[in-house]
């Protein structure tokens, strides 16, 4: 039996992450990165009570898990393949483990934090 590539698995995660990042990240970056720190429209947009209630709800936890984990898989898959195009060839298998390892560890940590929050 020919050795089959495991690339489709990572490409599927990359594709799913690409969809989620495209639809959700711009608005989310505006909220957490710009509006909340600048106190717009009012301070307390991301108060501890509000965010912990959101993270402890099932829809909120599912949203955060999907956004964080799939964005990680999307981002690190693309970073890994771009390194090849920048001429980085030596030690690429180590880079691959680091990239997908970070995405996997991030996914596990996100799941752990959310499950303990519920």
């Amino acid at each position: 039996m020919p050795k089959r590539s495991n690339e489709p698995v990572f490409w599927a995660l990359f594709g799913a992450g690409g969809v989620v990042a495209a639809f959700v990240l711009p608005a989310l970056i505006v909220v957490t990165g710009l509006a909340a720190p600048l106190g717009l429209p009012s301070p307390g947009v991301l108060s501890y009570e509000r965010v912990s209630a959101f993270a402890a709800s099932l829809p909120g936890a599912a949203f955060l898990f999907v956004v964080i984990s799939l964005s990680l898989w999307h981002g690190f898959h693309r970073i890994y393949h771009s390194l090849h195009e920048l001429g980085v060839h030596r030690g690429l298998s180590v880079v691959r483990v680091l990239c997908y390892g970070t995405a996997l560890a991030g996914t596990a940590l996100t799941a752990y934090l959310l499950v303990t929050a519920i």
Partner: peptide
């Protein structure tokens, strides 16, 4: 392709925020 660097970094930033949320109100 470079947009992926910011997608990954922002996801890590969110993950860190989630971590501080679990630690407690002062950390968050």
């Amino acid at each position: 392709e470079a947009t992926s660097v910011f997608v990954a970094l922002y996801a890590l930033q969110l993950l860190y925020g989630l971590y501080t949320l679990a630690v407690g109100e002062a950390a968050f």
